[in-house]
Design a protein around this nucleic acid. Sequence first.
DNA 1: AACGCTGCCTGTGGGC
DNA 2: TGCCCACAGGCAGCGT
Length: 281
Amino acid sequence: MPELPEVENVRKGLNEIVVGETIDKVEVRWPRIIESPEQNVFSKRLMGQTIEDVRRRGKFLLFYFTDDVLISHLRMEGKYQLMVPEKDGRLPRRSKHMHIIFHLKSGRKLVYHDVRKFGRMSLVEKGSEFEHKSLEKLGPEPTKDAFKLEDMQEFLTRRKKAIKGVLLDQQMIVGLGNIYADEVLFLAKVHPVTPANRLTDAEEIRIHEATIQIMGNAIKSGGTTIRTYQNAFGDEGSYQNHLKVYGKDGEACPNCGNEIEKIKVAGRGTHYCPVCQPLKG
DNA sequence: AACGCTGCCTGTGGGC
DNA sequence: TGCCCACAGGCAGCGT
């Protein structure tokens, strides 16, 4: 379940290993992963293009090629793996979860692996990438420079639903998924079902600061490894060692010692401390 | 405009 | 052991 810190770790890894590689051909084994253009056009257009840079916007990876940009979302379980030939020239074995294979002129292969096939890719002309429907409505990155308290407050006044659900909405702030949304609300001491337009100024300030702090720390830690997440080198992040509430239901709250509870909010499993994050009103 | 629901997918684990 | 079902959850698309 890569959220922004995990995607950023993947981006850094890819930048070190695939920049300068040229596509020989593309093998599409599960066409639904290619949103647009149609898979044969997708493959044909990429042939001969060289990867110049790998960037990120929110949870989206952007591969900058010679003429085009590949927009790639890993969704739940997507992974990129570089397959390097052994000394005898043989490549590691294929698995049934390798759905898109980028054959490179160097003889290596960049493989997109996705057990649940939720991930999506689009190829667009360079320069038009931020007009793509998946990118055009994204909110600011969760950094001090980009994420402004006043903009967040203005957004919250228009939302009546639970703050947990609003934090998952990529229009107010990008990059939070289920894990970091729970961690942010715990640090901010806000109950996850609090209606967004009923938060006090103090609570809004705490959420804003907690978001910037947690996302920054998680990026520094290389993300969170739960289940199977790894970057392109197979390296794991370490932020799972810093989680306070996510996946901790039944355990003691690190602040007050009371039991962490798990409820369902906005259709997601939600972890919180009922003592540190009381519901008001 | 905001919001909730469904579909997309497979693997895992609990209950019986 | 094996079967069934709930659950994991990001996002697009849809209806209200």
